[in-house]
Design a protein around this nucleic acid. Structure first.
Length: 348
DNA sequence: CGCGGGTTTCCTGATT
DNA sequence: GAATCAGGAAACCCGC
């Protein structure tokens, strides 16, 4: 349904805003990465920065007008696209005294955008709900109230396809459903919602993969093991401001993984069961899961490599069992619990 | 304050 | 060659 032009615009927008070495992105656009710093989306896609949309009421916009609008906003913001889209649309609506988005033409546009975004594999843009921009108001609406509540993490932001819009009536998710802002402010830490922002953790998928290279110098040989923490004014050598706290008891990695698996509606294609009864599961988006784990632990530098090390420690404790020869595949062991269908009352 | 649990971080080497 | 796995080593944080 989405037009190639729209795909182009949004794809470029995503790449422009969130240049990252994230594997998913690389996979999608291997040739686009490092050189698009100053990408002018509209120019690339359309050759000129047409702004005809400004002269037209939104309910009369054609797809081209929508594209112009998006391009214009991308050019202007280069970052917090969501709030700008929302605001711009609101302004346009106000200008033409549109009272709602109920016009069929605009609804179709919203659906078009939604469909496109939902089919994107880009983990960040895929969370955007154009049609739901109303009401979200660009606010940070993530609920981290419960350390054990997986829904409080931004699975939406890290997954790639499905929406949670149908879950709005589900009390477990209701407070976290407004992740429609393109600025992705919701990726902040839970506490940040009350004003304690975590600037280093605004865009975990972006920051993480740059961690090793953004030091800007070749890695030096260092002794084995974790280096001693260097106390500075701001923190340690690795992170000037981050304060890693341990999760409260009961929030262990394997439980976190389990909770992703037993809530497929929140899973967003991050993980899947290979054999539900045997407890065999597979990471589909390993880095995204690692990011979520890092988000939960307020550690923006978490990677799948580190997460998997922690997972391997579970072998000894028989919380996990090895699954030989299969990448990204693990199996719950006898010392794990809470994942069996009998335990959680799922009849499969 | 010390200790243990549970990671986290980094590493080397092997495998896919 | 990159991603992943395996596991050693040591640091770190937290609760007790």
């Amino acid at each position: 349904m989405s037009s190639p032009c729209l795909s182009s615009v949004l794809t470029h927008a995503n790449l422009t805003m969130y240049q990252t070495n994230h594997p998913d992105v690389l996979l999608q656009q291997p040739s686009m990465l490092p050189s698009i710093n100053n990408l002018q989306i509209s120019s690339l896609a359309y050759g000129s920065n047409s702004q005809c949309y400004k002269q037209i009421s939104p309910h009369c916009w054609t797809i081209d007008n929508v594209l112009e609008w998006i391009s214009d906003q991308v050019d202007r913001t280069n970052f917090d696209l969501g709030s700008h889209l929302h605001q711009s649309l609101h302004e346009q609506k106000t200008k033409y005294e549109l009272q709602s988005l109920s016009g069929p033409e605009l609804n179709e546009t919203c659906h078009l955008l939604d469909d496109f975004l939902s089919n994107l594999n880009f983990p960040l843009l895929s969370t955007i709900r154009i049609g739901q921009a109303e009401g979200a108001n660009g606010k940070r609406e993530f609920d981290y109230s419960d350390d054990h509540d997986l829904s409080t993490l931004t699975i939406e932001s890290l997954g790639d396809t499905e929406y949670l819009s149908d879950n709005q009536s589900d009390s477990e998710y209701s407070s976290s459903s407004n992740s429609s802002t393109l600025g992705f402010s919701g990726l902040g830490s839970p506490e940040s919602g009350s004003g304690e922002s975590d600037p280093e953790f605004s865009y975990p998928l972006i920051s993480i993969t740059n961690m090793k290279t953004e030091k800007g110098e070749p890695r030096q040989k260092r002794p084995r093991g974790r280096p001693p923490k260097v106390i500075t004014e701001h923190g340690n050598i690795y992170d000037n401001s981050k304060k890693i706290k341990h999760a409260p008891r009961g929030t262990h990695l394997w439980e976190f993984i389990r909770d992703i698996l037993i809530h497929p509606e929140k899973n967003q294609g991050l993980m899947k069961w290979e054999d539900r009864r045997e407890g065999i599961f597979k990471f589909l988006k390993s880095e995204a899961v690692a990011q979520m784990w890092g988000q939960k632990k307020k550690n923006s530098s978490m990677t799948y490599e580190k997460l998997s090390r922690a997972m391997r420690y579970y072998y000894k404790r028989e919380i996990l069992e090895r699954v030989d020869g299969r990448r990204l595949v693990y199996k719950f062991g006898k010392n794990s619990s809470g994942w069996k269908t009998e335990e959680i009352g799922i009849g499969i």
